[in-house]
Structures are given as structure tokens and as C-alpha cells.
Write a protein that binds this DNA or RNA. Structure first.
Lengths: 214, 214, 214, 214
DNA sequence: AATGAATGAGGCTTCATTCAT
DNA sequence: AATGAATGAAGCCTCATTCAT
């Protein structure tokens, strides 16, 4: 009944997403600098010129990739945190596992490594990522830590530093899988890595009388 | 007899080191790809041609930087481990602090970030770094963990994964200081960061009855 | 009977003129080469494709602009010359002032500069303009000069050269207003410029005993 | 005895001038925009990259052309004016003829047309040319006119406008030879054109009782 | 041992023109 | 009659590497 849009029209609507998907793949594989826009276009089945119909330049393309793929997950986590009832540690687990599912297990997992790699040479991108992603993500972590400290569930720790130390292994896992270990299929096994990390955290963060929790 | 070399001779011998120092600075600041050999030469007070007298190409220059600066520290840590007497945790601390002193507080601190950033695009470099640096460094960590587990000081953990989780925040600290936080003078404060990390580790790794240790 | 065309019909007929008007504006502002057809279409409220319905290509569009705007003024001046009675100098004044009014005070004033700027790179356009505009305009000037010389009103001068020297400041006025002086609203004041020019001409061309004329 | 520099050295010293000469030719032939730097290099017997050893970019190359070729002539005319003794009209003639000889009869004669053609699209170049060339050249003309008016040799005229009208045919002569007339070898004959212009000027500018002069 | 001039492949971006709808 | 998505050739500029001196 509702005959699908004409092929032509379908194509048009799909193009930006096809380009974004191709861009994500290549940015993750090669990094920002080394990704050639022609390759992005070709992988999306388009020509160089077509890409410029949808994105003003390389930088805009990259920002769009972030905007489409990373920021919605941050927003999701904000909702999770807002609606959470239960222990602070459980909240941290949920935030970490949701992030892992939506970012860590997808091609987006390569973005943090990319940012780390190119931030110094592309301050504009670094600024964008810092404001739109890092600040919002850290705010969530801070929230969870404060919640746990106030409720007496966690020991008292320095917020910023503890957050750094908690986040580091997670980011590092992403980074390793996309750099020295040569592709997400190699490197440490994520699920045991995360379990180990959370276990160490449980022992490290929780007060002694809660030692029995995992 | 032991008369110092003539100034001329001194100069000549110094050239490669001047070039290596300049290369280190620029590699760390810009990354491998974005570092221009002309800038390296200029910073060393030499000409582009001269650089090619001492190093076959960009890759050889980079490998020489690693060879001169990183590998000796690994060797030092191997000696520390071999000669260590005392608790396993104390050994881990010594290894970590020596690494921090010799790498973390020098320009070499930028190398891990660089490797992480460019490994995928320069497999030859990645291979070199993996074999000469990563494998040897991990062997040391494995050693310390095994030692602690055998002696009953540490809980039983999966060696590789635990090592990953232990190393991650240290590497991450280096990485952050050289990327998103825009220079080693920014980012988390290293000493409290490391202290926090070791503290969490102490709680996470040590068996319960040792909980009183720091 | 003479019912006005339907709005639809009106619109349709207006399209080419809207496109020509937009093209004139942009050609004058940017020059031929630097004018983007997409901008022309957009300014006319149409799409790029539509433009190609009415004009085979950029060149055809440009020729149409000339055909619509410049050539009719030449034709007008031919009528003025044919019907003129009075002094030769008065004829020259009328031709110059009519040109000034119809071309110099409109967006068409930018065309001579454009032609001068691009003639070498677009010989086809140069040829067109030379035949359709320059030759016909010069013929009029020649006519007026001959008329004045035959009647004894003007000194004897070399026709072609005198014509060049007479025309030059007028064209130059147009050119300046569209180039270095950055827009028709700047540059020399046209009316005093033209008056000065005609005054110098009067003194230069007229025989001594007519010195009292302006 | 003084053996010539080595061919290599010779080459090196000559390169910038060879490039400037090639650039002048092509800028004059094609205009600024349409000149391809690769063509400039090729014409100078060099490669694209070599050009960038000497000039930072297209703009710098163009400015260097002006700096080398036009500005010295302005300076020369400033000296002529400063040292002139004789009639104001004679000074104007000397300035015009020197300009004609050094600019009008060389490839530099194409520069004014280029500037007129591209000023709007390259404001940076326009600014440069206006300040370094136009203002200085006009100052000279103003000087000569004032001198003649003060001495009673010239009628009283509005300085700026008169200057415009006097300069226009000269610039126009250059322009025509480089645009519609398709090359400096065509167009009006310069010497009779200039003579005619000066003659009209003499009649137009000089007071009546000097009418006998040429 | 040292220089630095020269090269040319490679990447981002623009825009006239085409054509399926 | 109108659209606007798509193409791809072309131009500016960078930089690792070579080599004559």
C-alpha cells in the first residue's frame, strides 16, 4: 500500500548516513589525518563531490560522526543516572556497561583513540570533543561517586582523581583494541577485563564492612 | 691520556644525539606522521641533508629514539626486579615509580601516546615497539604478580587481565597529558593520580588480612 | 480579450528574465569566471537545473545578458545619431549622456570591466562582444567626429585615435567604479568626472574660434 | 680569473628571478586567478615544489612581481619629479613617457588590467596595489598639476577629477592592449595615442594665451 | 661531514554540467 | 517545466627523499 519511496528518493535520504558510516569506519581505521575523503566517498558508493553536498569539509564530517554516534549514548546515560534507584556501585556498573554496549562493541569504540591521537594537531576537534563528550561523561561519573560517598557506600576519595583512575582502564581498553593490538578483535578480552576492573573497583571503593559485595 | 676529544670531534659525535633530541621533542609534540623532518633538522641546528647522513629515513630515526630512551629504562627495571627483595607490592611500586621517573617525567612520556596513535598506520613501527618495549615491560609485571600470588600476598587473579588493568591507568596518565589535556603541564596531578591508583590496587589486589597496608 | 496571462503563465515567462537579472548582478560583482551558476540560480529563486532549461551553458547565459541589456542601448544611440540636428559636439554629448544613463547608472555598467578582465581567457565571448557592441559603438563615435570635422566645428584629428582617447575616460570611469574603487558607489563622482572630460574635450577638439562654447 | 660561480650556484641565485619572470608573463596573459602555479614553474624550468621554496604562496608570488617591477618605476618617477626644472606640462610629459617606457612597453604593462580585473575578488591584493602603487603614482600627478596651477601655466581645475581624467586614457591604453585587442601588439598605436592624448591635454589644461604650444 | 636546492606524488576542495525523477 | 543529486576534472599546497656540490 504505502509504496516505498522511489529508489532515487530512498538513495537521497540514505546518503548522509551511508557517508557517516563509511567515515566512521575509516576514521577509526586510519585516524583523522590519514583518512582520505575520497576513500570515504568510495566506500559509501559515492564520489568525492557527493560527500561535499552533505558535509562542508572534513572537520564537519567528523563532528557529524560524533554527533550521530557518541552524543546520543551520553544522553542515554544521563537518563539512566536520573532514573536510577539502587546502590551507587550498581549505577556505575550500569553506566559502564551501557557505554560498553553502545560504544565499546561498535565501530565507535575507535573514537576515543582517535581523539587522543589527533587532539594536539586539531585543536578545534579537541575542543568540540571535550565540551560535547568528555565534560558530559565526567559529570555523570562525578554524580555516581558523590551519590555513593554521601550514602556511605563508598570511602571518601578525591572526586576528580578517582574518576580519572576509574575511567582510565575503560578508555585504555578501547584504545588498545584500536591501536597496538591491531583491531578490536584482538587485545584483552573485554568482558573479563571489565569484570576484573569492576572487581578491583569494588574492593577499592567500597567501605570495609561492605567487603562481601562483588 | 684521557684528554677530552677535540671540540671538533665532540661536535661530530654529538650530532646524532642532537638530532635524536630534536626528533623526540617533535614526535612527542606532533606525532609521527605530522612531524616534518625539516623541522627536526632545523631544531637540531642541522640541515635536512645532514639528518639523512645519520638516519636512513623517518622510520629509522624514530626507532633510534626508542632505542636510546625507552629500552634502557626497561633494562633498568629488569635489574630492579632481579635484585628485589621484599614484598611483591613493594616491587610493583618500585617498578612503577622508576618508570614514572625516567619516562613519565621526561619528554619520553609522549611516546606511548604516539605509538597508540600511529600503530595502525605504521605496522612496522608497531611491531618494533611491541617486541622491544611492550613484551619486555609486561614480562616484568607478570613476574611481580606471580611473585605476589605465589607468596600469598595477592589474591588469585588472571595474570594477563590483571596486568592490563594495572598498567592501563599509568599509560592513560601519560596519554592524557599528551593529548586532550594539551601538554604535560595539564591533566591530572601525577603524584596524587599514581597514589590513588596504587591505593586502589592495594585494596584490590591484596588479600583481606593485609587490608591495613597502604 | 486582452485578458492578462494567468499568474502561472506570467511566472513562466518571467523566469528567463529573473535568471538574466541574477546573472547580471553576479557577473558584475564577481566576474565571469568566478560567478557560480548555482549562485545565479539561487538568487533567481530557481534551481541549477532550471537554469539549464533556458540557457545552454554559462556562455549562452552571458551572451543573453549582453543581448538584453547592452545592445538595445546601442540601437537607441543609433537612432539618436540618425535623427540628430545640431552641433557635432552636442551629438557627442547626447550619445555619451544616454550611454551613461542607460548603462553607466545601471548594473550593466559592470560589463565593460568584465569584458576587459576576461576577454583573453574567453575568446569566444570577446569576439561576440567586439562584434556586437564595440564595433557598433565605435561606428557611432566615428560618425559624430566626421560630422564635426566636415562641418568645420572640430579640428582635424586622426579618427580612430581620437575616438580611443575620447572613449577611454568614459570606459575607465565604469571600470574604476567596479574594480579598485570597490563598488559603483565609490570612485570619482561621475557627473563632475564627465563634465570635466567633456570640458577638456571641448577645448581639445573645437577649433579656436569656437572656444566660447562649453 | 674570477671564475664564475659554479653552475649550481648560478642556478640558485637566478631561480627567483626566473620564476618572477615566468609569473609575470602568465599573470599578464591569463590573469591572477587563471594562472596555474604549475605552469609558472614549468615555464621557469622548475617544478611546482621549487616555486614554493621561494614564495610562500600565489599571493606572495604576485606581490613580489609588483615589488620587483612596478614599484621601482614609481620611485624613479619620484626622483624625476623632485629634480625637475621646467614647465609643469613638460614634467607631466616626462612622467608619462618614463612610465610608458618602463611599464607600458614591457610585460608589466599587463598589470593594471590584471588589477582592475581581479581587485574585487582579491581584496588583499587590491589593498596592496592601492597603497604601494596607486597612491604613490597619484601623488606624483597631483604634484605636477598643483605646480602648473600655481605657476599660472594651467587653468584652475579640480585636482582629483582632473587627475582621473588625465590618467584614464593611459591606463586604458594598457588595458586595451591586454584585453579586447588581444595582446600588446594590437590595439591603438601607442605613440600616436599618447601624442593625441597629450595634445588634447595641452589644449585642455593650458591657459589660452599659451594656445600656441603643442 | 654537511648542505640545501629540487622533485613530484598526494590530499582537500570547488564547480560546470548531466540526468533521473 | 522544474528539481537537485551526482559526478570528476582541476588547482593549491605539503613534505619525504635525493643528490650535486
Amino acid at each position: 500500500m504505502d509504496s516505498p519511496a522511489t529508489p532515487r528518493k530512498r538513495r537521497k535520504d540514505a546518503r548522509p548516513n551511508e557517508l557517516l558510516a563509511a567515515a566512521l569506519d575509516l576514521f577509526v581505521e586510519k585516524g583523522y589525518s590519514a583518512t582520505r575523503l575520497e576513500d570515504v566517498a568510495t566506500r559509501a558508493g559515492a564520489s568525492k563531490g557527493t560527500l561535499y553536498l552533505y558535509f562542508a569539509n572534513k572537520e564537519a564530517l567528523f563532528k557529524a560522526v560524533i554527533e550521530e554516534g557518541i552524543i546520543p549514548v551520553i544522553a542515554e546515560n544521563e537518563t539512566i543516572a536520573a532514573e536510577h534507584t539502587g546502590s551507587a556501585f550498581a549505577l556505575m556498573e550500569r553506566l559502564i556497561y551501557n557505554w560498553w554496549e553502545k560504544i565499546g562493541q561498535t565501530a565507535y569504540s575507535g573514537i576515543p583513540k582517535l581523539m587522543v591521537a589527533e587532539a594536539r594537531n586539531f585543536p578545534e576537534l579537541a575542543q568540540f570533543y571535550y565540551e560535547k563528550v568528555i565534560l558530559r561523561a565526567r559529570a555523570l561519573g562525578t554524580q555516581a561517586l558523590q551519590y555513593g560517598m554521601r550514602s556511605g557506600e563508598f570511602r571518601t576519595v578525591d572526586l576528580d582523581t578517582a574518576l580519572d583512575v576509574i575511567i582510565a582502564p575503560i578508555i585504555m581498553l578501547l584504545i588498545l583494541r584500536h591501536s597496538l593490538y591491531g583491531g578490536p578483535e584482538h587485545g584483552p578480552d573485554p568482558s573479563s577485563y571489565l569484570k576484573t576492573h569492576l572487581q578491583l573497583l569494588a574492593h577499592g571503593l567500597l567501605k570495609l564492612d561492605k567487603e562481601t559485595q562483588v
